[in-house]
Amino acid sequence: MSILVNKNTNVLVQGITGKEGSFHAQKCIEYGTKVTAGVTPFKGKTLFNDSVPVYNTIKEAKKEHKIDATMVFVPAGFAAAGVIEAIEAEIPLIVCITEGIPVIDMLNVKAALNCSKSLMIGPNCPGIITADECKIGIMPGFIHKKGRVGVLSRSGTLTYEAVNQLTKAGFGETTCIGIGGDPIIGSPFISFLKMFEQDTETDAVVMIGEIGGTAEEEASEYVKNHMKKPVIGFIAGKTAPAGKRMGHAGAIISGGKGTASDKLKTMEKNGIHIADNPSVIAETVKKALNI
């Protein structure tokens, strides 16, 4: 088992003919992902790489294919509309890679999501991968190996750092999800913690947070009240100055709130196993699992 995606997941790619979209769609196909169809306006009735049919709209694609998930590579100015198109088409899982969507647009998307059947990952994220089965995103596939740890993160390369250690230490991963680095994201840590708790193959969850907002605090409350599996946590940005956006739009300490030390304090109090620096994530997993 794993969560959300596996080898049978039928994936649509929105923006499949663009520079980023085509490059990563190809990498996903090479990994083994079932890329069923693509969408690019005015490119309908063509084929991507001589094999994947491209449609003008999701509506057209849905007439011909069963679609379980969509990977969104639409440019920032149009991405929110692309996500809402997917919501209206009732696609169960929407993975939005796009960085730089205006916050006001994301507020609308979030409101639409709340009254929909869709679950959204991202935006501004590396995506989701179930090791050796399905990759919907831009992460390097080779560092992932089927195993027993679930990974959740607000970051990209920092996630790869954690995954690489878990693989090298022999734990491997079940499913790994980058939830996104923006202030407003489709789904918080909690949505996925719930699924990992129920997943029979996941023995522990690594949760990588960073400064800004209160998502980690809320997640740790959830862990304390509803989870039996150990959760290992790391927070990036202990040395970040207040009031500055540290690369990710959501990584900002504002009005003295959202500091790493506040987060770590709450997480520790709620029973999260803290990794003091990213180099000891696998080691902390080991301790948490009493190995």
């Binding site: 993160s153 607000r154 970051s155 990209g156 390369t157 920092l158 996630t159 750092e161 680095g181 990588i208 960073e210 400064i211 790391f234 990036a236 940005g237 202990k238 040395t239 970040a240 500055k244 540290m246 690369g247 990710h248 990584a251 790493a260 003091d276 620096n277 990213p278 180099s279």
Partner: peptide, 27 residues
Amino acid sequence: MVNGAGLAMATMDTIKEFGAAPANFLD
């Protein structure tokens, strides 16, 4: 000099942990 914002922050933090101080954040 780091690739990725999260890793860049984590790098700054780790430098501090080993007794030096980062001069910048750079992704």
